[in-house]
Design a binder for these strands. Structure first.
Length: 824
RNA sequence: GCCACGGUGGCGAAAUUGGUAUACGCAAUGGACUUAAAAUCCAUCGUCAUGACAUGACAUGCGGGUUCAAGUCCCGCCCGUGGCACCA
């Protein structure tokens, strides 16, 4: 027997699999289809252990499904646009395209070393014009249908660098630009948005999806549906002016003692009195430098400034002061609120700080008539709370109080019911070069004009010059900028904003199915961009896997795009993926996120070189539950490599001789229990316990080796190899060829079946407790009648002392498990 | 701050539905093999108490509660992780 040399057999089998094409999917196969998708990587330059953690278990699952008789499609690609390429361009004076494609080339090689069954022929790269042409095509369709529109929206902007900054480029509490250390401000730019809010209601519906509860919860909260009322308030003395507020608590409207506009609210400039103007403008300026988390944190003290103006409560005509405060966000609701300090925590804190009145208008059910005295904290709605100090609505109780006030507002014509969402439309404009160009032009006479479909793609220039400030080179590139108006053929300028890279990852899984199409070769003259028959057969995705960090943003955009394309008649379904599984993060040894600056990055290439791919794969799956993630533990990997070595020697071990009835029964039981356990575990992504079960089986097999007939021994070794194949594909293949040559690849075999009768235990260990404390364990055959079990427990010698001089009050018998004797 | 998730031996972790807490593995310790080392194999291994066996008590972040029975359910804390809309 020769030694287990992973590097030798791994490269041998990778080469063999590629040449034989055995993992190339047949999209026309008669077998049941299975579309397995893992989130596509960003080509940062080096394959990280985190990529392995995401992809090796996904591959094991794909292989498992293949052995279960499915035709598995498991594609891969690269999400290739984005900020890091531009940073590299500025730093190293290299075009982002060159940097990106170099990285992709390197990562392809590293990905291949994982031995995954990726469908490489279906690869897509999002920065290929053949790919982004279709991102542009979908954008133009959305523009036609009013789903894409332009609006002013604030961005973090550095005046010194003349560029927009991503959140990660804004440093510290001071909010300074990462490049020049100057303060960052909010600046409103005219930008493109997609109307995702139109789909808010449908996105709340997860029926038919097997997605983790936590992701559904996070998305539901992110969308943030709330039912309430929107009503108008007029400005005292300027009755032609009004603003609207949204509230979920119209029953408290009589308790409004002030109202608050977001600092960005357009009305602020019009209503502010001359005396207050300086203070208001200073406050607006300060607010423009904060981000939303800072503005709305409850830990921070709320502050604001009085505008000098008063609004009229439409219910009773009472004037209330108008303030501005940055805890009111312009992006949520109407950007203005009525403040009812007596019944809202934030309003209460604000009123206390500025000595504003806190009239109570809701009282607890049991309270006496009239207003309670001085409030020390806001009183929030409780069961039976009733309205007080609200002429015409006295003593109404929720939800009648809500209905009654709302009906009144609607009748009087100043308010109506409104469903509000926290979800905002998707801002897709990026003032950057390395992204999909937004295919519109601006003509001085015809205005904004879409680029005609037949002129797509609008491509990025290869000779862009990057400024150290980070400003988009497209703004200065004449070759790109100047074009012809499709309407009047006059001079026009191209849009220089590019699309958010989340656009690329919102539809890539459909492109995978049409690799030649994606290269621009298969598009017919028909009105559909793809072949509906194939789409119908292969989509949607059966199993999607990826990091939990994508729970709200990508996974919401992903669903949104499918709904939009379905409404365009391009897809015959409305959800992109039936099942979702999110793996956790792999952390550094120090339990911190891996990063170069912390110096805690684990390099998978080194590990592969030392231990081999199969060991790295097995260890990553054995570390812990896949959805939990784990810190890297450099010592444990020895265990994985030892396990694989022991399987190697087991398979090479000469046939044992000798038969013992109890050993045969024991091993048979272990075999069938293991097949059952591993199958159940793998189908639920519980790789760690599946591997533990395989290890236990290996232990049993080794211990009983000398007492088994050859046929059973061989059956066990074959089953072990089959079950190990998804995790350690190369080792399993090598040993399969050794044990059962001529049967083809281990990966084309059928998953072993278990026999329930053979897996059945014939003896159990019964636990005997007295008052819930363990006192004895009794071995007995299964299926004894309950009375007999109880009698055996009572008669136990170890139990007896605890029953002396006590009366038995109750005996609880859990069949085949436990007897608990309760004594007094 | 808000939303979501998690906290179990020296370490990674296991524990179908509330029913034997610590499976599987790592590290450690002792032993076998070896001239020696590596590798491999065997044994021990939650903490405390009586020298070991045995037995008992205590242990699943902290404090309460429900229950015959709580790692698991409920209430209140503490700590950690992910996301918070221009990183992807």
């Amino acid at each position: 027997m020769h030694e287990y040399l992973p590097s030798e057999i791994e490269s041998k089998w990778q080469k063999h699999w590629e040449e034989s094409g055995q993992f190339r999917p047949d999209l026309n196969s008669d077998q049941q289809k299975f579309y397995m998708l893992t989130m596509l990587p960003y080509p940062s330059g080096d394959l990280h252990i985190g990529h392995w953690y995401a992809m090796a278990p996904s591959d094991a699952y794909a292989r498992f499904m293949k052995m279960q008789g499915h035709e598995v499609f498991f594609p891969i690609g690269f999400d290739a646009f984005g900020l890091p390429a531009e940073n590299a361009a500025i730093k190293n004076n290299i075009h982002p395209k060159e940097w990106t494609y170099k990285n992709i080339e390197r990562m392809r090689g590293q990905l291949r070393s994982m031995g995954n069954m990726f469908a490489w022929e279906h690869e897509i790269v999002s920065c290929d014009p053949e790919y982004y042409k279709w991102s542009q095509w979908f954008f133009l369709k959305m523009l036609e249908q009013g789903l894409a529109y332009r609006e002013h929206a604030p961005v973090d902007f550095c005046n010194h660098c003349q560029t927009t900054l991503a959140r990660e480029q804004v440093w510290g509490e001071e909010r300074l630009c990462e490049r020049c250390n100057n303060p960052v401000v909010k600046k409103a730019l005219n930008q493109w948005k997609l109307r995702i809010t139109k789909y808010a209601e449908e996105l709340l519906d997860f029926s038919g999806l097997e997605w983790p509860e936590k992701v559904r919860l996070m998305q539901t909260n992110w969308i943030g549906r709330s039912e309430g009322v929107e009503f108008a308030l007029k400005i005292q003395g300027q009755e032609q002016l009004e603003f609207r507020v949204f509230t979920t608590r119209p029953d408290t409207v009589f308790g409004m003692s002030f109202c608050v506009l977001a600092p960005e609210h357009p009305l602020v400039g019009q209503v502010t009195t001359p005396e207050q103007r300086a203070a208001v403008e200073a406050y607006q300026d300060a607010a423009s430098r904060k981000n939303e988390i800072e503005r709305t944190s409850e830990g921070k003290e709320k502050d604001g400034v009085f505008t000098g103006a008063y609004a009229l409560n439409p219910m009773n005509g009472e004037p209330v002061p108008i303030w501005i405060a940055d805890y009111v966000l312009f992006t949520y609701g109407t950007g203005a609120i009525m403040a009812v300090p007596a019944h809202d925590e934030r309003d209460f804190a604000f009123a206390r700080k500025y000595d504003l009145p806190t009239p109570a208008v809701i009282a607890p059910a049991e309270a006496e008539e009239g207003a309670p005295g001085e409030l020390t904290e806001p009183f929030t709605l409780k069961e039976g709370s009733r309205m007080i100090n609200s002429p015409g609505f006295e003593n109404l109780v929720w939800p009648e109080s809500f209905e009654s006030v709302t009906d009144h507002m609607a009748r009087e014509g100043f308010g109506e019911r409104q469903v509000n969402y926290r979800l905002r439309d998707w801002l897709i404009s990026r003032q950057r070069m390395w992204g999909t160009p937004i295919p519109v032009v601006y003509c001085s006479s015809c205005g904004m004009q879409p680029v005609p479909f037949e002129q797509l793609p609008v491509t990025l220039p290869d000779d862009a010059e990057f400024k150290p400030t980070g400003e988009s080179p497209l703004k200065h590139h004449q070759g790109f900028l100047s074009t012809e108006c499709p309407q009047c053929q006059g001079e026009a300028e191209r849009e220089t904003d590019t699309m958010d890279t989340f656009i690329c990852s919102s539809w890539y899984y459909y492109a995978y199915l049409f690799p030649y199409w994606a290269r621009g070769e298969a598009l017919g003259s028909g009105s559909l961009p793809w072949d509906m028959e194939r789409m119908q057969r292969w989509a949607p995705v059966d199993q999607y896997t990826g990091g939990i960090e994508h729970a709200t943003m990508h996974l919401l955009y992903f669903r949104f795009y499918t709904k939009v394309l379905a409404d365009m008649g391009l897809l015959p379904f409305r959800e992109p993926a039936t099942r979702l599984f999110n793996q956790g993060m792999i952390l550094g040894e120090d339990h911190e996120k891996m990063s170069k600056s912390r110096g805690n990055v684990v390099n998978p290439d080194d590990l592969v070189q030392k231990y081999g791919t199969d060991t790295v794969r097995t260890y990553l799956m054995f570390l812990g539950p896949w959805d939990a993630g784990a810190p890297w533990n450099p010592q444990g990997i020895e265990g994985a490599t030892r396990f694989l070595k022991s399987v190697w020697s087991l398979a090479h071990q000469p046939h044992p001789s000798g038969e013992r009835e109890d050993s045969i029964r024991k091993v048979q039981r272990a075999l069938h229990q293991t097949i059952r356990k591993v199958g159940e575990d793998l189908s639920q992504f519980r790789f760690n316990t599946a591997i533990a079960a395989l290890m236990s089986f290996r232990n049993t097999l080794k211990a009983e080796a000398d007492h088994l007939p050859e046929s059973l021994w061989e059956e066990c070794v074959r089953a072990l190899l089959l079950m190990l194949a998804p995790m350690a594909p190369h080792l399993a293949e090598e040993l399969w060829q050794l044990k059962v040559p001529g049967t083809g690849s281990v990966h084309n075999q059928t998953w072993p079946e278990f026999n329930t009768d053979l897996a059945q235990e014939d003896r159990i260990t019964l636990v005997v407790q007295v008052n819930g404390k363990l006192r004895d364990r009794l071995e007995m055959p299964v299926g004894l009648p309950q009375e007999e079990v109880e009698q055996l427990a009572r008669n136990s010698e170890r139990v007896a002392p605890y029953l002396e001089n006590r009366s038995v009050r109750r005996v609880i018998v859990v069949p085949e498990k436990l007897v608990n004797i309760v004594v007094g």
